[in-house]
Nucleic acid binder design. Structure first.
Length: 860
RNA sequence: GCUCGAGUGGUGAAAUUGGCAAACACGCCAGACUUAGGAUCUGGUGCCUAACGGCCUGAGGGUUCGAGUCCCUCCUCGAGCACCA
């Protein structure tokens, strides 16, 4: 069976084979212990309303080629796909149109799926998952509850951007210069109660894990920088005339003799206590002013540093010197202890500050190059540092801290830039957080009662939150209560008081909970007659999870997408483990890839997944495809290429081939409409080598020339190697070279005709299937094994040696005997006409021979 | 500012350990077949030069018999970080 057209009619061929694959479930896989597994993972798309972008098929084709190749190598290959479908665009569409985001999402997914099927990816669609499906997010909620139980989820009052004009909380990225990006309304800082995940507890594990993964260096570096671990010391400074002391964190304890002042962040709690009476007003004003400033203004490097003296003094524990305590907003409250020891001689920022306020600058490090320009921020030899003078910075760091530690004025310490993960969003279209808030007294009474139903996910310490003078505690739902689904509504706007739209849906919001039976009923349906001590009134958490939640563990769900009893079936995970290859855009270098590593590591630690510690062993980022004008594709520039139109015009095989031929996979590269004609022509040439003008299979040669056999075998070898190295552009050019020589030789022989299709199949599967079938084969070419090349055909029968004079190529020398002596080769080479000419009567100073490759005569 | 990455024909690009720079393709030029060509095939195509020949991998220097590849300085572009003490 095959499409049967006379000419290369890609439309007919491609739809025929897509139906064939669907009907025969060609790409569906099961665990098979007799075979080695290979798990290929794509970053799943957000199904936007605009359909597939031309960039999507780039990564998907690359992973598809690898998946098909690995399958041909005998692996049991899993290549699944799904939808990361929660998110803001669907919600905004709902606000505009009133159409439920779920409906809209289903439509978008069906468009995406149809488009992807048209490109012929070898995907096991039976494993399709959707993060907005309650069967899926039931387990996202379950993981949240595990985090909650293990003390890794807590609530905190966090400052967020509030926009009264939009009645909504905005993300940092949505605030530009103190106004909302959309609508240009003013925004203010507002403290809201937020869920936060304790990712910082995993900082060290997340850092260590990076040393065992095969990832792009730049991505590893980004994560390392994001985690931002530093080694240093906490040093305690006594305050003159007060009992309190100030703790500062420093990575440069070797510069402690150069401290000329301390600086506290304006938010530092000690300020009020220590400020000298005369300085009170100025300090108060400065603190107030800096609170008004946006983060952007405070961190603007261009501005000159400002600050204010507190009039208080601290004692340097190293030398007993009295130093002034300042406040300044260049010191961040959120890092370290919110206070620093300022060493203007050896820190750029302290130097700037000291210069503008006329504070002393002391040099305590001697720079080896000796120009002694301050501030000198590198390491060197200590000077003016008491008994530590003469030590190197490195040595001094250990010795000074050890000494201060003995007198209880310091301790070794580490610090991280990583902050805990703000996990709540005031949105409708996200996973509801499966928590009910109940009064603290009810909670305590329930916990004390041994009939308490809700023990499954109970943390050691209750998570509590005060509101209107009453303290509430977070009551976790149990597995039986999941999924907690989104209530229907037709109003997706935020409520206006900093809560999600869910806060307006009272029938969902207010519930009675039976703490002994676990029963939950809407408050409005509750029959007061039933009321007894087991029933308590609660209010559901109204925040939803951020979009990152669903993508944190989807690679696990693919392994057993229909499992109802666990996040992943244990047989399935024992077999498939974690992805062997993961491809997706570099824009997720820190967010998704860090969050997912955190969750995986957590699930590993609690024994929920029995795999390695890292979820993504090998990671690759495909480069962005630019518009034909070399700029980013965008509607406003009018340079957007629609994959559907490309498939209509050239076919899916041509699209696949072209996206891979464009250049190295990881590089940014511009699209070229002319360029695709080249690969389209190649496919037509392939067709014509197999099928004659009447649509019949050609007669192949009995034998192929030695030259052609060399090329064919080289091609089999190179294409295989290039796929393993993800160098698809050169693999394709090698296939073109091969076809060109076959064409010159007047056609294939039987064996090479079959082998060529097998290596083409991962790149252009439709035409390969069609021609394979026409050669008289049954079944899919997908199920054939990769051809072995014949190494003896590749070895050249004679050796070619390059002859150079003064390093410039002047001739080629062909020798039959690979073991010919050096002298004999020189003799042959020197007598070649063109070589003679360049040597002429000049004196030969040196003769170089590199075995089997090059001869070089050096003449005066 | 700091840290990475990149810079090769008209264009996208290719080039084991340092060993024929520009494979493969696009475009362009010429030709063949054609009523026709936006089809197909053949040949040509880095730059300078009439030619011999010379010069070419962002610029300059270095190491080497030999450098696109290694080292130093600088320029340009891209990415990331950005007062993290």
């Amino acid at each position: 069976m095959y499409a049967g057209c006379k000419q290369y009619d890609f439309d007919q061929i491609e739809s025929f084979w897509q139906r064939f694959w669907d009907k025969n479930k060609t790409f569906c896989v099961q665990e098979d212990p007799s075979k080695e597994k290979y798990y290929v993972l794509d970053m799943f798309p957000y199904p936007s309303g605009t359909g597939l972008h031309i960039g999507h098929p780039e990564g998907y084709t690359a992973s598809d080629i690898l998946a098909r190749y690995k399958h041909a190598r005998g692996y049991n290959v899993l290549h699944p796909m799904g939808w990361d479908a929660f998110g803001l665009p669907a919600e905004q569409h709902a606000i505009k149109t009133g159409i439920n985001p779920a409906t809209n999402t289903v439509n978008n997914i069906s468009v995406f799926k149809k488009q992807m099927k048209r490109i012929g990816f070898a995907i096991d669609w039976e494993r399709e998952i959707n993060t907005t499906d309650p069967h899926y997010f039931k387990w996202t909620q379950w993981i949240f509850l595990q985090l909650f139980k293990h003390g890794l989820a807590y609530v905190d009052e966090c400052p967020v951007w509030w926009c009264e004009g939009l009645k909504s909380v905005l993300a940092n990225e949505e605030v530009i210069g103190g106004r909302s990006e959309r609508g240009n309304f003013p925004v203010v800082r507002k403290n809201l109660c937020q869920w936060v995940l304790r990712i910082t507890r995993y900082a060290d594990k997340l850092l260590e894990g990076l040393s065992n993964v095969d990832w792009p260096d730049s991505t590893k570096r980004q994560q390392i920088a994001w985690i931002g671990k530093s080694e240093g010391a906490n040093i305690f400074f006594k305050i003159d005339g007060h009992d309190e002391e100030i703790c500062v964190y420093t990575t440069r304890p070797d510069t402690i003799f150069g401290v000329t002042f301390l600086v506290l962040a304006p938010e530092h709690p000690l300020i009020e206590k220590i400020v000298a009476p005369k300085f009170k007003d100025g300090v108060k004003k400065y603190v107030k002013d800096s609170q008004k400033k946006s983060d952007l203004e405070r961190t603007d490097l261009a501005k000159t540093k400002t600050g204010m003296s507190t009039g208080a003094y601290a004692i340097n524990p190293a030398n007993g010197e009295k130093i002034e305590i300042w406040i300044a907003d260049y010191v961040l409250a959120s890092y370290g202890s919110g206070a620093i020891m300022a060493v203007p001689g050896h820190d750029k920022r302290d130097y700037d500050f000291a210069s503008s306020y006329g504070i002393a600058i002391t040099q305590v490090i001697d720079e080896s190059s000796g120009d002694n320009q301050l501030p000198y921020v590198g390491d060197g030899v200590l000077i003016n540092s008491g008994r530590f003078s003469g030590l190197s910075s490195e040595e001094a760091r250990g010795k000074i801290v050890s000494w201060l530690r003995e007198i209880k004025r310091a301790d070794f310490a580490q610090n991280y830039k990583l902050r805990d993960w703000l996990f709540s969003r005031q949105r409708y279209w996200g996973e509801p957080i499966p928590i009910i808030w109940i009064k603290e007294n009810d909670y305590k009474a329930a916990v004390a009662n041994n009939k308490f139903y809700f023990k499954e996910f109970l943390p050691n310490e209750p998570i509590s939150n005060g509101k209107d003078g009453i303290t509430y505690c977070a009551l976790p739902l149990c597995t039986n209560h999941l999924p907690l689904t989104l209530p229907p509504t037709d109003n997706y706007l935020p409520s206006g008081d900093g809560e999600s739209p869910l806060a307006k849906i009272h029938s969902w919001l207010n519930v009675y909970v039976n703490i002994e039976t676990g029963q939950i009923v809407p408050a409005e349906d509750f029959n007061e007659k039933d009321k007894n001590s087991s029933w308590i009134l609660g209010r559901r958490e109204t925040n939803t999870m951020p979009q990152w939640a669903g993508s944190c563990w989807y690679y696990l769900r693919y392994l057993s997408p229909h499992c109802e009893t666990a996040i992943v079936d244990s047989n399935a995970i024992n077999y498939w483990q974690t992805p062997d290859f993961y491809i997706g855009g570099a824009e997720h270098a820190v967010l998704h890839l860090l969050y997912a590593r955190f969750w995986h590591r957590f699930l590993f630690d609690i024994g929920a997944v029995e795999t390695g510690k890292e979820p993504f062993k090998k990671l690759f980022h495909q480069g962005i495809i630019l518009g034909e004008d070399g700029t980013k594709m965008s509607k406003s520039r009018g340079n957007v290429i629609n994959p559907d139109e490309v498939v209509n015009r050239y076919g899916a095989d041509a699209l696949r081939l072209y996206e891979m031929f464009l250049g190295p996979l990881d590089m940014m590269k511009p699209w070229s409409t002319k360029g695709i004609e080249g690969v389209s022509r190649f496919l037509k040439k392939v067709w014509n080598e197999y099928i004659d003008g009447d649509g019949n299979v050609r007669n192949f040669h009995e034998n192929l020339s030695d030259e052609c056999q060399t090329v064919v075998n080289e091609t089999i070898k190179k294409v295989g190697n290039d796929i393993e190295g993800l160098k698809f552009n050169t693999a394709i050019s090698q296939m073109m070279i091969c076809l060109n020589s076959i064409q010159k030789a007047g056609g294939f022989d039987n064996a090479s005709a079959r082998n060529f299709l097998k290596i083409l199949a991962p790149f252009a599967p439709h035409i390969s299937e069609e021609l394979w079938a026409r050669l008289g084969n049954n079944g899919s070419i997908y199920d054939t094994l990769w051809p072995e090349y014949d190494g003896s055909k590749i070895l050249p029968t004679h050796q070619k040696i390059i002859v150079q004079v003064n390093g410039k190529m002047r001739a080629e020398l062909v020798i039959d005997d690979a073991n010919m002596s050096e002298d004999a080769i020189f003799k042959l080479a020197i007598n070649i006409g063109n070589v003679k000419k360049y040597i002429a009567d000049k004196k030969i100073l040196k003769k170089v021979y590199v075995n089997g490759t090059v001869v070089n005569f050096v003449v005066e």
